[in-house]
Simulated assay, not measured.
Amino acid sequence: MALVSSGFRLAGPLVWWGWLVLCSLPRQAPVPAEATASLTQALLAIHFPVAAFTLAFWTLQDPRTRTWCRRLVIACALYLGGQMLLQALTKQPDGGF
């Protein structure tokens, strides 16, 4: 039963991935190398929805694991925000550091 409802939750990310692939289809003949690389990257982006699905329905089933992951994500976001603030405050006028 849970996987039936989870199929609906997976539909949104799969629509996003399909749109990404559709927008990355080459529109020229002959196909340039950049277009091939763009399509390859879009096709391989399927790992994002799959990772979100596995986190939601397999890895993070235990409340302790969810709490640990939430704290880790918050710590990473705070660290990145602090680094961005530090770079903004210490940047030289000529663009150097």
Rank of each mutant, 00 (worst) to 15 (best):
F57R: 09
T36Q: 15
Q87H: 12
Q28P: 04
R71L: 10
L78V: 10
Q28S: 15
L44K: 11
A45V: 06
V4I: 14
Q92T: 10
G82L: 09
P32Q: 10
T67C: 10
G82N: 06
L86Q: 10
G12M: 07
T40P: 03
A35C: 03
L85W: 07
K91M: 08
L20Y: 04
A56Y: 03
P93Y: 03
C23K: 15
L25F: 02
L10D: 05
F57P: 07
L10E: 13
C69E: 09
V15Q: 11
C76G: 01
A35V: 03
L39C: 00
V73S: 15
D62L: 04
F8H: 11
G12F: 08
L22P: 05
E34V: 14
F48P: 04
P63V: 04
S38T: 06
A11N: 04
T36G: 15
A88R: 13
M84Q: 13
T67N: 07
S5R: 14
F57D: 11
F97K: 09
D94G: 13
W17F: 05
T90P: 08
A33Q: 08
W16R: 07
A42M: 00
F8P: 06
V4P: 02
P26M: 04
D62M: 07
I46A: 08
Q87K: 08
L44N: 08
L14R: 00
P49Q: 00
A35T: 03
F97T: 09
L14M: 11
L14E: 10
F97Y: 13
L39K: 00
W17R: 02
A56N: 06
A45S: 14
E34S: 05
Q61L: 14
S24T: 01
V21C: 10
G7A: 12
C23N: 15
A77F: 07
G96Y: 12
V50H: 02
L55H: 10
A2D: 12
T36P: 12
A52L: 09
W58Q: 14
R64K: 05
A2H: 10
Q87I: 01
L44T: 04
R71C: 09
T40E: 11
A37P: 01
L86W: 12
I74K: 07
W17I: 00
L44I: 10
C76M: 11
P30Y: 01
W17C: 05
T67F: 06
A52N: 04
L89A: 13
L10N: 01
D94H: 07
P32L: 02
P93H: 02
D94Y: 05
V73K: 01
R66V: 05
A45M: 08
T65Q: 15
L14I: 00
L25H: 10
A29H: 12
R9V: 03
R71K: 09
Q28V: 14
S38K: 11
P30G: 05
P49Y: 01
F97D: 07
A77P: 02
E34W: 01
V15M: 08
A2G: 13
A56M: 07
G95A: 08
W17L: 03
A45Y: 02
Q92L: 07
F53Q: 10
